[in-house]
């Protein structure tokens, strides 16, 4: 089955990012295709490489990055939600006159069309959030 994931909450603050990751991992292990993970609302905060969680806890961003590297999962951060919350890649930083970017490896910033496309293309769109 072709599956799209929508993550609507920030890491650590909310379980959504953990459950979505575990779901993605389990789906891949079962032979399903995870077509895309789309990060929206505070979910965009999953995509900053500047987070420094305690060393004895999970590193949510690095876990996503490893999933992308191992299985080619497309991790997409919504540009409009990202701009509001200060998540940007080098192009966005330049366009908006910022002095730094913070997007993590394996993530890319794109538009909401990527979410709607995932909903149309996938057999299931699974939402993680409240």
């Amino acid at each position: 089955m072709k599956i799209g994931l929508l993550v609507n909450e920030g890491p650590y603050q909310h379980q959504a990012a953990d459950t979505a990751f575990q779901f993605a991992q389990a789906a891949i292990e079962k032979g399903h295709e995870v077509f895309r993970v789309f990060f929206y609302h505070d979910g965009v905060n999953n995509g900053t490489r500047l987070a420094t969680p305690p060393q004895d806890d999970r590193h949510i961003q690095r876990r996503w990055t490893a999933l992308a590297e191992a299985h080619g999962v497309d991790l997409v951060v919504c540009v409009a939600a990202a701009q509001r919350r200060g998540i940007c890649d080098p192009d966005e930083a330049k366009r908006n006159g910022k002095d730094a970017d913070n997007i993590a490896p394996g993530f890319r910033i794109s538009g909401l069309g990527q979410l709607v496309e995932a909903a149309i293309e996938c057999d299931r769109l699974v939402t993680f959030g409240d």
Binding site: Y40, G113, L115, I120
Partner: peptide, 19 residues
């Protein structure tokens, strides 16, 4: 919360997909 306005943004963008 921001859910309503960001939800509406998805509707407006999604309209381009002719579903």
């Amino acid at each position: 919360t921001i859910y309503a306005v960001e939800g509406l943004e998805v509707v407006l963008i999604g309209a381009a997909f002719d579903q």
